[in-house]
Write a protein that binds this DNA or RNA. Sequence first.
DNA 1: GTATTATCCCGACAATGTCGGAGTAATCAG
DNA 2: CTGATTACTCCGACATTGTCGGGATAATAC
Lengths: 107, 107
Amino acid sequence: MISFLGEFEQLLLLAIIRCGDEAYGAALQRELEQVRRGVHLGAVYTTLLRLESKGLVASRVGDPTAERGGRRKKFYRILPAGSRQLERSLAALRTMTAGLPRPLEAP
Amino acid sequence: MISFLGEFEQLLLLAIIRCGDEAYGAALQRELEQVRRGVHLGAVYTTLLRLESKGLVASRVGDPTAERGGRRKKFYRILPAGSRQLERSLAALRTMTAGLPRPLEAP
DNA sequence: GTATTATCCCGACAATGTCGGAGTAATCAG
DNA sequence: CTGATTACTCCGACATTGTCGGGATAATAC
């Protein structure tokens, strides 16, 4: 049970970092869309749930906004354990791509 | 149905590139071990099979060697479609990591 | 021939990824 | 207040990818 991060989990963690304190479901979807077409919102939430149950991210429920409708947003932030795992995954790719000719360079 | 590469598939494709024309099961396992502990040989072969059925890699059976025992080795090489998919996955990570502090260390 | 070795392959299960749609809580209009 | 409308979150089922153990195969050594 050598747990590891899937690719979508990696991208989602990165999206959380990039969104800062505006990291809720729909915003994360928009962020991911820049990089991958057709990201389903359900996929985002399912993955967030699993990341939270693994202790890699934490969430808090936001206050009601002045906007028309909608449930309260749930904001996510990455936890230290999440950063560590993410960095480990990226390091693996960096090692494996080191010395290879572009365009196969490391992230 | 827009199939994407899993993380292990990415690493395996990179290992195939790195091994050049010595890319057979056990050698790929050794290459992957540098980056991930406890890589099971079965995982390598299963993934190779699936990559081949997706048309991302091709294989050829090698000649008998002068070594003690063993079945003939099966050597793999990456196909253009494989390179393209791999590059696309890495590009996504590159985009998402752009502008972030390099060691994503725990706070 | 039999023993020994290195390699490849299969089948079953676990974890991750995807999808559609139901459920919930907020504002707006009357 | 009530109902319509809206923006989100969540659930359940299935597809794909990852893991594991063990067995089959084919080569050399004796």
